[in-house]
Design a protein around this nucleic acid. Structure first.
Length: 288
DNA sequence: AATCACGTCAACCGCGGCCTA
DNA sequence: CTAGGCCGCGGTTGACGTGAT
C-alpha cells in the first residue's frame, strides 16, 4: 500500500511517559477545540509528540468519561462472555462497558482474567467458533437464520408502514438494516453482519465447501419488492412471529454453539436481555 | 539491605480498513 | 480505479511496583 512512515519517525518528537504539563496542554486544547485532526493536533497544541501518541493518551487516559478503579464482578462477567463471543475484539467489548477503554480491558484480560480462567481449570474460550466440520452445519444454520430474518424484516417493515402515519417505505429499498431499527428481527441481521457472523463465514469458507445456501434469497427479495400485504395485515402477529423466531435463534446459538447463555462454565448469567426489553438492549449497538 | 522474580499497565508499533483526491 | 493519507485496532514492549528469598 506504500504507506508512509508513521509521524513518530520524525526526529525530535518525544516518546515515553507523559508529563503533567503535556497532559494539561492536551486536555486544554481538546476541551476548547476538540481533537480535530490528530495529525495536526500536536503542532496546534504546542506538543512535541506525534498525533498517534496524543490520541492514545487522550482515549486511554485523559478522556473525562473514563472510569478508573477495579473492575466489578459484573464487568468481569461481561468481559469473559463477550470475549467468548467476539474474541480479541477489545474495542467491541469496550463499547459494552461504559467508561472502560479497550486498552484497559485488554490489559485486564491478559493479566487477570486469562490467568483466573486457567487457574479454574478452564481452557481459554476460543476466539470465535471452533474450526472443523461442525462449522459447516452452523454456517447453514446461520444462513437459514439470516434468510428468516430478511423475510421477517420485510413483514415488519410492511406492517409498520401500513399502520404508521405517513411513514415512507424506504426501509424496503435497503438490503440491510436501517439505522436505529431495533426490532427483534433486526438482531438476526445485526448478528449476521457482526463479527460473529463474519467468523462463521470465514471458518466455513476455510473449512468445508458449502453448497450455496442463498438459493431462496432472490425469492425473498422479490417478495420484499412486491410487498406482501396480506401478511402485513396483522402487525401484532408479525411481531409475535419475530419474537418466536428470535427465541428459537437464541436457543440455537445457546444450545448448539454454547454462546450467549452462561451454562455454568463461566457462571450463571445471560448476555441477552429478555425479549420484552430487547428494544432497549445496549448490546444491539455493538452490531452496527 | 540487596537482589531477583513476577505482576501490572501505560505507551509504542505496525497493520489494515476507510476515505478522499 | 487507484494511490496516498489518516485513524483505529490489536499485539507487544518496557518501566515501574511489589513481594519473596
Amino acid at each position: 500500500m506504500g504507506r508512509a512512515p508513521c509521524c513518530d519517525r520524525k526526529q525530535g518528537l518525544k516518546k515515553g511517559p507523559w508529563t503533567p504539563e503535556e497532559d494539561k496542554l492536551l486536555v486544554d486544547y481538546i476541551e476548547t477545540n476538540g481533537h480535530g485532526s490528530w495529525r495536526l493536533l500536536p503542532k496546534l497544541a504546542g506538543l512535541n509528540r506525534c498525533g498517534k501518541s496524543c490520541r492514545l493518551r487522550w482515549t486511554n487516559y485523559l478522556r473525562p468519561d473514563i472510569k478508573r478503579g477495579p473492575f466489578t464482578p459484573e464487568e468481569q462477567k461481561s468481559i469473559i462472555q463477550l470475549h467468548a463471543i467476539v474474541g480479541n475484539k477489545w474495542s467491541m467489548i469496550a463499547a459494552q462497558l461504559p467508561g472502560r477503554t479497550d486498552n484497559e480491558i485488554k490489559n485486564y484480560w491478559n493479566t487477570h482474567l486469562k490467568k483466573q480462567l486457567r487457574k479454574m481449570g478452564l481452557a481459554e474460550p476460543p476466539p470465535g467458533p471452533a474450526a472443523g466440520s461442525p462449522a459447516a452445519r452452523h454456517m447453514a444454520q446461520w444462513e437459514t437464520a439470516r434468510l428468516e430474518a430478511e423475510a421477517r424484516l420485510s413483514l415488519l417493515a410492511a406492517a409498520s408502514s401500513s399502520s404508521g402515519a405517513g411513514a415512507t417505505t424506504s426501509a424496503s429499498s435497503s438490503s440491510t438494516v436501517g439505522a436505529g431499527s431495533d426490532k427483534p428481527a433486526d438482531i438476526y441481521l445485526r448478528l449476521w453482519s457482526s463479527d460473529i457472523g463474519d467468523s462463521f463465514r470465514k471458518v466455513a469458507k476455510a473449512g468445508s465447501s458449502l453448497p450455496p445456501a442463498n438459493k431462496d434469497t432472490a425469492v425473498i427479495k422479490q417478495e420484499r419488492r412486491s410487498g406482501d400485504d396480506s401478511s402485513a395485515a396483522s402487525s401484532e402477529m408479525a411481531v409475535a412471529l419475530a419474537l418466536e423466531e428470535y427465541q428459537m435463534f437464541l436457543d440455537l446459538a445457546g444450545e448448539e454453539l454454547g454462546l450467549f447463555q452462561g451454562n455454568g462454565r463461566y457462571g450463571d448469567f445471560s448476555l441477552f436481555q429478555p425479549l420484552d426489553v430487547l428494544a432497549e438492549a445496549p448490546l444491539a449497538t455493538a452490531f452496527k
